[in-house]
Measured scan of single mutants.
Amino acid sequence: EDEVKKIVKRLIENGVDDEQIKEIVKRQGVDERIVDKVLKELK
């Protein structure tokens, strides 16, 4: 989960929008619920 957080944070800093972040992270095989949780925490 910490790995996911790092990735998502980097994507947000690069101006990637939420939908794209979800797609990218899902392609890495991460559960969507984890992605949603991380996005909420970082906003």
Rank of each mutant, 00 (worst) to 15 (best):
E1P: 09
E1C: 06
E1I: 15
E1Q: 09
E1H: 12
E1G: 07
E1T: 11
E1D: 09
E1Y: 14
E1L: 12
E1R: 07
D2T: 09
D2L: 10
D2R: 08
D2P: 08
D2Y: 08
D2A: 13
D2E: 14
D2G: 08
D2S: 11
E3I: 13
E3S: 11
E3P: 07
E3D: 10
E3R: 10
E3W: 15
V4C: 03
V4A: 06
V4E: 01
V4F: 05
V4P: 01
V4I: 13
K5T: 08
K5I: 10
K5N: 05
K5Y: 05
K5D: 02
K5R: 13
K5E: 06
K5M: 07
K5S: 06
K5L: 07
K5F: 04
K6F: 03
K6I: 12
K6D: 10
K6T: 12
K6E: 14
K6A: 15
K6Q: 14
K6V: 12
K6L: 10
K6H: 10
K6C: 06
K6W: 03
I7L: 12
I7W: 05
I7G: 02
I7F: 03
I7T: 10
I7A: 08
I7M: 10
I7E: 08
I7K: 07
I7Y: 02
V8R: 00
V8H: 00
V8Q: 00
V8Y: 00
V8F: 00
V8N: 00
V8E: 00
V8T: 02
V8D: 00
K9P: 00
K9V: 09
K9H: 09
K9C: 05
K9I: 12
K9L: 08
K9R: 14
K9Q: 13
K9E: 09
R10I: 12
R10S: 12
R10G: 10
R10L: 12
R10D: 11
R10P: 04
R10V: 12
R10E: 14
R10Y: 07
R10H: 13
R10N: 11
R10C: 07
L11P: 00
L11E: 01
L11C: 04
L11R: 00
L11W: 02
L11Y: 05
L11N: 01
L11S: 01
L11K: 00
L11A: 02
I12Y: 14
I12C: 03
I12D: 00
I12P: 00
I12F: 11
I12G: 02
I12L: 15
I12H: 14
E13S: 09
E13C: 05
E13W: 05
E13K: 10
E13D: 11
E13Q: 11
E13F: 07
E13V: 07
E13Y: 07
N14F: 13
N14D: 15
N14R: 14
N14C: 06
N14M: 15
N14W: 14
N14S: 14
N14A: 15
N14P: 01
N14E: 14
G15E: 05
G15Y: 05
G15S: 05
G15L: 06
G15T: 02
G15A: 05
G15R: 06
G15F: 06
G15H: 09
V16G: 03
V16Y: 15
V16E: 07
V16S: 08
V16T: 09
V16Q: 08
V16P: 01
V16M: 15
D17I: 09
D17H: 12
D17L: 12
D17T: 15
D17Y: 07
D17K: 13
D17V: 09
D17E: 12
D17C: 06
D18S: 11
D18T: 12
D18Q: 10
D18M: 12
D18L: 12
D18K: 09
D18C: 06
D18R: 09
D18E: 13
E19I: 11
E19F: 09
E19L: 11
E19Q: 12
E19M: 12
E19H: 09
E19G: 09
E19T: 12
E19N: 12
E19S: 10
E19A: 14
Q20S: 13
Q20D: 10
Q20N: 10
Q20V: 11
Q20L: 13
Q20K: 13
Q20F: 09
Q20P: 02
Q20E: 13
Q20W: 08
I21W: 01
I21F: 01
I21V: 07
I21K: 00
I21R: 00
I21A: 03
K22F: 10
K22V: 11
K22L: 12
K22G: 04
K22M: 13
K22D: 01
K22P: 02
K22E: 03
K22T: 06
K22S: 04
E23F: 01
E23S: 10
E23D: 10
E23Q: 12
E23H: 09
E23R: 11
E23G: 08
E23K: 10
E23W: 01
I24S: 04
I24K: 05
I24G: 02
I24N: 04
I24M: 09
I24D: 03
I24V: 08
I24Q: 07
I24H: 06
I24P: 00
I24Y: 03
V25P: 00
V25K: 01
V25G: 03
V25Y: 02
V25M: 15
V25E: 01
V25S: 04
V25F: 14
V25C: 06
V25L: 15
K26Y: 04
K26Q: 11
K26G: 12
K26H: 08
K26R: 13
K26M: 15
K26I: 15
K26S: 12
K26N: 07
K26E: 06
K26W: 02
R27T: 09
R27M: 13
R27D: 09
R27L: 13
R27S: 14
R27Q: 13
R27K: 13
R27E: 09
R27P: 03
R27N: 13
R27W: 04
Q28T: 14
Q28E: 09
Q28P: 03
Q28I: 14
Q28K: 11
Q28S: 13
Q28D: 09
Q28N: 10
Q28W: 08
Q28L: 15
G29N: 07
G29F: 05
G29Y: 03
G29W: 03
G29S: 04
G29E: 03
G29Q: 04
G29L: 05
G29P: 02
G29H: 05
V30P: 02
V30A: 08
V30H: 13
V30M: 12
V30S: 04
V30W: 15
V30I: 14
V30D: 01
V30N: 04
V30R: 05
V30G: 08
D31Q: 08
D31E: 11
D31N: 10
D31I: 06
D31Y: 02
D31T: 07
E32F: 04
E32S: 12
E32V: 13
E32A: 12
E32P: 14
E32M: 11
E32N: 06
E32Q: 11
E32K: 07
R33D: 11
R33Q: 14
R33P: 05
R33N: 14
R33F: 12
R33I: 11
R33W: 13
I34A: 06
I34Y: 07
I34R: 05
I34Q: 06
I34N: 03
I34H: 05
I34P: 00
I34C: 03
I34D: 05
I34E: 06
V35G: 01
V35K: 00
V35S: 02
V35I: 15
V35T: 07
V35W: 03
D36S: 07
D36K: 07
D36E: 15
D36Q: 05
D36R: 04
D36V: 08
D36A: 07
D36M: 03
D36N: 08
D36H: 04
K37T: 07
K37D: 06
K37V: 05
K37S: 07
K37M: 08
K37Y: 03
K37P: 01
K37Q: 09
V38A: 08
V38C: 06
V38H: 03
V38E: 01
V38M: 10
V38D: 00
V38W: 08
V38G: 00
L39R: 03
L39Y: 02
L39D: 01
L39I: 10
L39Q: 01
L39S: 01
L39F: 04
L39H: 02
L39C: 02
L39T: 03
L39P: 00
L39M: 08
L39G: 00
K40M: 12
K40V: 10
K40T: 14
K40Q: 14
K40D: 15
K40R: 10
K40S: 14
K40F: 04
E41V: 02
E41N: 05
E41Y: 03
E41W: 03
E41M: 03
E41D: 15
E41G: 04
E41K: 03
E41H: 03
E41A: 04
L42F: 04
L42W: 01
L42I: 15
L42K: 03
L42Y: 03
L42E: 05
L42C: 02
L42A: 10
K43C: 06
K43L: 13
K43V: 09
K43R: 12
K43T: 09
K43S: 13
K43P: 08
K43N: 11
K43Q: 14
